[in-house]
């Protein structure tokens, strides 16, 4: 609690600070010497080609993947000490949606952290979960079995679950991946709400077109950190080419001319779905 008071006084503590983060799988580096400073109150996209280590970076910041080296601070503290102030939306494909449980029950998992060991969620948690479901437009689905949801609805359930954590820093892994228009709008509305409340949101994102529209901060990643900063400064053709190699046939700065860069060979890799990076 003490640390909480500290940060609210000195509001310039970065939301996330990463130094020299290196991660390797079977001796092959997937993240190399990453430095990152994310100020509080920004919506940040993490973009990069498949296998660039976007998900890996997020997971190693959250301690889910062991880093070979490096130091991570969230709100100026080691992650372990500020867990309660950090929310997480995993890729929706990472769980079994045929699990025997209801939408409301999944959302209530967002309250488990504040409940601590042994204690079961009660009426208060149920009410909060209902409110979170309403925020994502899923209140009618509260008592549905989760296997009956569409992909977009699954995503909104995960979002509602994270909202229940009432965190200050949110990590979201590909929330826009393969969702319908309703869900996309719902996610954007939530992101804007969170920014208004001065929360920080870090989103692994794959759609370069929408980066300037949805986000104000961006990190370009390809094993190494290519660039990181405000979108208008950092999201340039040059940086994108550095991150994606010559593969980018869909750079955004030139409006709707999606294939202006046809002189560069478009690698087939650019269309391969991300394999657990």
């Amino acid at each position: 609690m003490e640390s909480h008071a500290n940060t609210s006084i000195s509001g310039n503590v970065p939301a996330v600070e990463v130094n020299d983060l290196t991660v390797a799988y079977h001796e092959k580096p997937v993240l190399w010497d990453i430095d990152l400073v994310v100020p509080q109150g920004v919506l940040m996209a993490v973009v990069g080609p498949n296998g660039a280590g976007k998900t890996t970076m997020m997971k190693s910041i959250l301690g889910l993947i062991k880093a070979a080296a490096g130091d991570v601070r969230i709100l100026g503290e080691p992650y372990d000490q500020v867990r309660r102030r950090v929310g997480y939306v995993p890729q929706r494909g990472s769980v079994d949606w045929d699990f025997p449980t209801t939408v409301l029950d999944v959302v209530m998992m967002g309250s488990y952290g504040s409940l601590g060991w042994f204690k079961r969620p009660g009426r208060q948690q149920r009410e909060k979960a209902s409110a979170a479901l309403e925020r994502v437009g899923m209140e009618k689905f509260a008592h549905r079995q989760i296997s009956q949801l569409s992909g977009g609805q699954q995503q909104r359930v995960f979002l509602a679950r994270a909202l229940l954590q009432e965190a200050e820093v949110y990590f979201m892994d590909e929330p826009f991946q393969g969702v319908d228009a309703t869900t996309e709008r719902a996610i954007i509305a939530i992101l804007k709400d969170l920014r208004k409340a001065n929360k920080t949101v870090i989103v692994v994102h794959h759609d370069l077109q929408t980066v300037p529209e949805y986000f104000d901060w961006v990190t370009l990643l390809n094993v190494r950190r290519i660039a990181s900063g405000p979108v208008e400064e950092v999201f340039t053709d040059e940086n994108l080419r550095a991150a994606f190699g010559g593969k980018v046939g869909f750079l955004t700065k030139h409006g709707h001319d999606e294939h202006h860069d046809a002189s560069h060979p478009v690698s087939p890799e650019a269309n391969v779905p991300e394999a657990g990076s």
Binding site: L62, R83, Y88, V95, D96, M109, Y112, G113, W117, F118
Partner: peptide
């Protein structure tokens, strides 16, 4: 019975459970 909710987390979404501090 005692670890009901923790076992549910483990079975449904283990990594999320880790981020919650369990």
């Amino acid at each position: 019975g005692v670890f009901w909710k923790e076992l549910k987390l483990l079975s449904f979404d283990r990594e999320y459970g880790d981020t919650l501090g369990f």
